[in-house]
Write a protein that binds this DNA or RNA. Structure first.
Lengths: 340, 340
DNA sequence: TTGTGTCGTGCAACCGATTTCCTTCAACCA
DNA sequence: TGGTTGAAGGAAATCGGTTGCACGACACAA
């Protein structure tokens, strides 16, 4: 796999200096003064030997690991794949490793995380799986381990990395209203989960601003089943609805299912917009109009945020401001009433 | 996060023994002889202090890291989520960490892996992203880093961990034939990718055994678009087909799309079975009959296989034998001809 | 000439485990 | 009684970096 690991000792010998100098030169220690010629001898030796510091040795001495944990609620949810990808990419650039953790039974997450911290496997944590009653939150509040919450904010934590979800909802409502819809419903995520709540608020606010009824909202889990049930519920109670805005792609799949079961054609009888632009959206029947969000940027920003904290910056919350984009496909059209 | 890291020194002091004894007792060194009373003092001290060995220190000394790399082709593909989950779970049991790596530009994977190995971040590698021309294969053949290939086998490598894909195809064909279908097509994966080829072979063999035409096969990428194109192609060229077997769920979504475009109703005009049982399959229209495979077991077996290698076992290939299960849903029914 | 700094460099301790090599003591054998 | 053996345990080297401190040489001011 390589020309046999070179150690710092090897580099030092090759450059004819001591380990200390080699180390300081390679780390760019600012207080160091060396002759330029010496410096370049070290640098050249290092590249010639393909030197890479051994993370265990460095970590042992520096009492840090160069790795972050990234906790996602469910590996199978494609939204997280995007966030994770963004995080991985940025981590590679910043020369740290990311340990991905799935957080399916929140109870086991506390032991897992504290074990990883105690073993010295991670320096900090990015949590994408927050929920109000999550046992991890209490332990993190101690401040013993640096962390940020990504996507799912924890109010009051002061370390949230989020996107402008409310704006995304507004864009969805605008798109539908622009087509002439006056009766729009929202299949919302669980109110307990922060982005769900923010999207719902964004929906209600913009609806109100446009003089539409902001109350046609049904809450459900971010799953196909949840979307199905919520949509059926909404459409039964409010047959006048001509459009639905789903809070996630899984829910949107359920919404399409509901339409099919209730014998409503999309978009003829019902327009559907969804959060989460993904390849799947393009190949559902009909292809779904969706809102594209900067998920990779979000993941990258989370990595930056924890690393900055570890380097001593004061923790702070961050909002990725890139505006949502509406990807228009066949699932949205003017309402029948206005068309006929 | 914890009552302040305890070191081996702390345990030793608490148990009133030397570090050496503490280390040996905790590691269960077989050649050690201690009085039972001493041993239990050490053990109790360790649990009382919540001692966890520092992986960097241990790794430095033992020249190994207690971590494995797991390379998947695409984080957004839910199939891999299952495999990864299985691997994570087993890794936790065996007390190692798993570093997940996405392998989207194979060219960058060689530098990434050799860097991780050189830095001492991983001891071994599980590769789920093999392709015949993958640059990583050449470098792995050197034998400098322990590895296995999972799901996508590399012929001749001798370190493949796979499932009985061919049997799965046979089960799909059996299910369709059992319903009365005599004209079955197969939307296959790329022949270059091993499981695709094995599934196609399995399909052809069983078709032949049943006296059906084994040649109704179209190859495509494991994507929605691929499935769409392949299905359109097959159905145009062979209008007599009454059933299609898709090699992956993404492709199956494309197949449904194709049916819709060609104005074929599923299952009335066309039955569809797919590989890869997932929640999504249940909520597509119509819900898809699918083949469920032991993906988590596959991931776990891969972890075991690399760890065994690292412990000195001779490398070998493994096949998970658990038989495929057909989950019957509404996308399959007797062919129209036999019904009418 | 003698301090006093500064520059350039190196020695050695240290991080926390593992492991090699001893030491001590008692039992046992011839 | 001397020597061998085995049980029980400990001292110290080691892994590969990082970092506090010391050291020699030289410049410069007094």
């Amino acid at each position: 796999m390589s020309p046999a690991r070179a150690t710092l000792q090897d580099v030092a010998r090759e450059a004819d200096v001591s380990k200390s100098i080699a180390s300081r030169v390679l780390n760019g220690t600012p207080t160091l003064s060396v002759r330029p010629e010496t410096r370049s001898r070290v640098l050249h030796a290092a590249t010639r030997l393909g030197y890479r510091p051994h993370v265990a040795a460095r970590g042992l001495r520096r009492a840090q690991t160069g790795a972050l944990g990234l906790m996602v609620p469910d590996l199978a949810m494609p939204v997280y794949a995007r966030i994770v990808r963004g995080a991985f990419t940025r981590a590679l650039e910043r020369d740290v490793a990311v340990l991905l953790l799935e957080d399916r039974q929140p109870d086991s997450s506390v032991p897992t995380v504290s074990r990883l911290v105690q073993e010295g496997r991670i320096d900090g944590l990015i949590v994408a799986s927050a929920r109000p009653d999550h046992p991890l939150l209490g332990r993190l509040r101690d401040g013993l381990v640096s962390h940020v919450f990504v996507n799912r904010a924890v109010p009051g934590s002061g370390v949230n990395v989020t996107m402008s979800d409310a704006e995304a909802s507004a864009a969805a409502v605008d798109h539908l209203a622009g087509l002439g819809h006056r009766h729009i419903g929202h299949v919302a995520g669980p109110a307990a989960v922060d982005p769900g709540r923010r999207r719902a608020t964004g929906f209600a606010n913009r609806a109100r601003e446009l003089g539409l009824d902001p109350s046609r909202v049904a809450e459900s889990e971010f799953t196909e089943r949840g979307g199905l049930d919520a949509a059926v519920d909404l459409l039964r109670r409010h047959p006048e609805l001509t459009a639905l805005y789903a809070s996630s792609l899984s829910q949107a799949v359920g919404v399409l299912d509901a339409a099919w079961r209730m014998d409503l054609r999309v978009p003829h009888d019902l327009s559907v917009v969804t959060y989460d632009e993904m390849p799947l959206a393009e190949h559902l029947r009909p292809p779904l109009t969706s809102i594209s969000m900067p998920l990779a940027e979000l993941g990258a920003a989370a990595v930056d945020a924890v690393l900055d904290q570890l380097e001593g910056a004061t923790p702070r919350s961050i909002v990725i401001e890139r505006p949502p984009q509406v990807v228009v496909r066949e699932s949205t059209a003017p309402p029948r009433s206005s068309a006929s």
